[in-house]
């Protein structure tokens, strides 16, 4: 249960190797979370990550999770409830970022990645939301992106999946209104990390730690949307209004 000061007790991370996901989990454990499940493909999470979380005092469980197999997602949530009890925070942090140039030449790969970046989040998110609704509390953290707020030609396959995810998350949040459960939509800018290695950072880019800090702060509050950095919110209010002819010329 979330306590009076906003600390939580249990955390489920889907995409257990995600850099941002692990950064959030680490902060939540430091803040008092005592039971954690890291769900990753093949059930493989780096030993040093497990050891680090255990050293911080958490009971850490590992489970097999494949984002591209939606038929397994409900069962995974059930397993998590079995091990952790009520789910205070669920973070689906899996995703793939391919290059638009590759997608242009390999439509099948593009569809596969969209299935993970959007479809996987839909099945995992709905399965988690059902549980959160039943237990009457808990937060589903959806890692959206500014790439989905207004899709750019430079990465429109990735961007359109994020656009779908962002819309899904908002709708799910509204559907859960009044149930005690909530959805927190996180919209980071360009995140400098493992996932974007070798890419040139866009303006207003952020580090993994900044994103994790912002998510943890938002979990303590009653926020439903968090932009990282916060000034991206007003910036995109303007960018959404730019004429197509201008937007099209955006270099990245």
């Amino acid at each position: 249960m979330r306590n009076a000061l906003g600390s939580v007790d249990t955390v489920l991370l889907l995409g257990g190797r995600s850099e941002i996901g692990l950064a959030i989990v680490t902060r939540l454990v430091r803040d008092g979370a005592s039971r954690v499940m890291l769900a990753a493909r093949g059930g493989t999470v780096p030993e040093e990550e497990l050891a680090r979380l255990r050293k911080l005092g958490a009971e850490v469980h590992v489970a097999d999770f494949d984002a591209s197999r939606p038929e397994t997602h409900q069962a995974l949530i059930d397993t998590a409830v079995d091990r952790l009890g009520d789910l205070d925070v669920v973070i689906p942090a899996f995703g793939v970022l391919g290059s638009q140039a590759v997608y242009d030449g390999d439509p099948e790969a593009a569809a596969r990645d969209v299935a993970v970046n959007f479809g996987g989040h839909v099945s995992a998110g709905l399965a988690a939301a059902r549980r959160l609704r039943e237990q009457g509390h808990g937060t589903l953290v959806v890692l959206s992106s500014v790439a989905g707020v207004r899709v750019r030609r430079a990465n429109f396959v990735y961007g359109s999946a994020k656009a779908g995810l962002d819309g899904f998350a908002q709708g799910l949040g509204d559907a859960l209104h009044g149930s005690g459960a909530r959805v927190l939509v996180v919209r980071p800018g360009f995140v400098i990390g493992r996932m974007t290695e070798g890419m040139t950072p866009a303006p207003m880019s952020v580090g993994v730690d900044e994103v994790a800090d912002a998510v943890v702060a938002a979990l303590r509050s009653r926020a439903r949307v968090v932009w990282v950095p916060a000034r991206l919110g007003p910036a995109f209010a303007v960018m959404r209004l730019l004429p197509r002819a201008v937007w099209r010329r955006m270099p990245r």
Partner: peptide, 16 residues
């Protein structure tokens, strides 16, 4: 469902 808290008015949750 009714949203309930204790006297401290923190951490509300709904119940029947």
């Amino acid at each position: 469902m009714t949203l309930l808290t204790g006297w401290g008015r923190t951490a509300p949750t709904p119940a029947t």
